[in-house]
């Protein structure tokens, strides 16, 4: 067991956990941030995606000890003062979900993509999101939602 100071969604939190415990378990089981999901534990599905210093990472493959110095953002941290982020809003508007279990991870991956590439081509969207699985097969709408979020951000910036 080790003591860690984490910066999660802008709040500093202290946790005690084994050094090799995945960040995913720390978020879900110790901090009760259950919006981040378990899907495979081997970095293959993207359900557990969070942002580490703005970049999409698989929290199931990130030991808590490695996350201690980073700024961590989870799905719970995207909404600001009751306003959804452009990606969240786009997922809602496109209804780019069925059971919604993949949705958190999808939104985090898309957020990471758009922060680096505000105007992605379809190939770039597919390339960046391909590590995220939607078993309900909502892919076409998810691509649509990412496009929509990109447009919304563009308009907002003008």
């Amino acid at each position: 067991m080790g003591d860690y100071v984490l910066d999660v969604n802008g709040t500093v939190v202290h946790v005690t956990a084994p050094a090799d415990e995945p960040l995913l378990s720390v978020l879900r089981d110790r901090l009760n941030l259950t919006g981040t999901k378990y899907g495979c534990g081997e970095g293959q599905c993207g359900a557990c995606t969070v942002l580490l210093n703005g970049v999409a990472m698989r929290s199931c493959r990130t030991p808590v000890s490695a996350a201690a110095t980073a700024k961590i953002v989870t799905i719970e941290g995207l909404e600001r003062h009751g306003v959804l982020s452009p990606v969240q809003q786009a997922f809602l508007d496109e209804e780019a979900l069925q059971c919604g279990y993949c949705t958190s991870g999808m939104i985090m991956s898309a957020t990471s993509l758009l922060s680096k590439t505000p105007n992605p081509t379809d190939e770039q969207i597919v390339g960046a999101m391909n590590g995220n699985v939607c078993r309900c097969g909502t892919y076409p709408r998810i691509v649509e939602a990412v496009r929509r979020a990109a447009h919304a951000a563009e308009k907002g910036a003008q």
Binding site: T34, I75, E76, Q89, F91, L97, T103
Partner: peptide, 8 residues
């Protein structure tokens, strides 16, 4: 739908 896109 809102609860699904916010992780709630």
């Amino acid at each position: 739908g809102h609860d699904f896109v916010t992780g709630k």
